[in-house]
Every structure is written in structure tokens, then in C-alpha cells.
Computed example of a mutant assay.
Amino acid sequence: MDFDFNSMDRIEKDFSGLFVTLSMTQKKIRELLVEHSDGKVLKGDELVGWLGEIYTKIAVGGYLVDDSFEHDVETTSGMTIPVKTRRGSNSGWTRTSAIPKIEGEEVPTHLMFVHLDEDYVVSEMWLYPWQDLIEKERFRKHIVRGNFRSYYMSVNPTKDQRYKVYASNL
């Protein structure tokens, strides 16, 4: 097999300035978001997730908790909320990422789903009481190669209007 590293290098150089700008911009955004993170370590390069958690924290008047919990946000009134965030409108945006467990001790009281537009602006937010999701059998098993991996749930923008707590006026 022949490799074309010269072409790869040319393309990389073409994008180099843009990637430097993107990297510096993301670093600056991260630094600014840390000011709102309540001491929670913002791991990895998960801008979409960080935004969803911080927007939820602000919207419900809560605070972020560390990753040892099954949820991301707590309120002084006792709400515990995992936050699932998706960006864009490609197929699949309505489906949450993995939810490790849905029943037992320390399950959350609510689930927040945050939908961002392509420009990272909040488009919609839904707040689901956890018990409603259980009772309405909204959680589905995520099976990978025949093995149970986790759970997920999907937002139904038409049928879930009663759970919608925010919609942009764009």
C-alpha cells in the first residue's frame, strides 16, 4: 500500500491556521465556562456537554456536582438532574447518550435534555420527571453485539410539549 503523506501534509497546512484559531477559541471558552462550573472539573473536550450542564444549572438555580454522582445538577429543593445535550438537527439529535441505570438507590429525580443549534445556542430544553419516564416506559435498552450496555431515551418534540421548559424565539 502506498501512502500519500505529501498530500496529507498539504491539507493539514491548509487548515492549520483555522485549527489554531479553533483551538485558541475553545481554550478561551473553556476558561470562561470554568468560572460557572462550581469547581467541577470540565474533562476532555466536551463543549456541548459542558454547555448543557451549565445552562441547566443556571436555569434551575442549582449547582454542578462531581462525576461520582449519577446526575450533574442539584438544587437546594432536592432535585437531582442528569443533563443530556445534543447539538444540531441531524438524525439522532433526539436520542440521549448513555444512561447507566434507571432504577434503584440514588436515581435522579429529573432528566434535562438540552438541544443546541449549530451555533451552540440553546434551541429547546425539556425537563422530565424521572418517574414519568419510568411509568411511560421511555427508557430503552442499548444493546451492543447482543449485550446490554446502558439505557437511553428519546425526546419526541411533538408529543413532549408538556415537558418543554424553554424554546428560543428565533
Rank of each mutant, 00 (worst) to 15 (best):
R95K: 11
K13M: 13
M125E: 02
T21A: 04
T56P: 02
F139C: 01
L32G: 13
R140C: 11
T76A: 14
S123R: 15
T94V: 10
L32S: 12
G92Q: 05
S91F: 01
L42C: 04
F69P: 03
D14Q: 14
I81V: 05
M1Q: 07
I54V: 09
L64H: 00
H115F: 01
S154C: 07
H36V: 07
G39K: 08
W50L: 06
R10D: 08
V114G: 00
Y63G: 02
F19Q: 11
F3I: 14
W126G: 00
E124V: 06
H110N: 11
M1R: 09
D132A: 07
K136T: 10
E105F: 13
T25N: 13
I143A: 08
S37N: 05
G44H: 15
W130M: 00
M24S: 07
F139I: 05
N90Y: 08
L42T: 01
H115Q: 03
V83Q: 02
L133K: 01
G61N: 04
E124D: 11
E53Q: 11
G39E: 09
N147V: 13
V144F: 04
V83A: 01
K164W: 00
L33M: 07
H142F: 14
S23I: 12
R30V: 10
I99A: 02
R145Q: 13
H142E: 13
R30G: 13
K57W: 06
S23D: 05
L51F: 07
S97Q: 14
R95G: 10
L51K: 05
I134K: 12
S37V: 03
I134P: 10
R95S: 08
L127T: 02
G62D: 02
K141Q: 15
I11R: 09
V20R: 09
K43L: 08
M112F: 04
F69K: 11
R140K: 10
P157N: 05
F15H: 11
S168K: 06
H142W: 09
D9F: 15
D9E: 11
K159G: 02
G61F: 04
K159L: 09
E31T: 15
T75E: 03
S91Y: 01
H71D: 01
L22Y: 12
E70N: 15
L33W: 04
T76G: 14
D4M: 12
F69E: 07
E106M: 08
V73M: 03
D2R: 06
D38I: 03
R149L: 08
L33S: 14
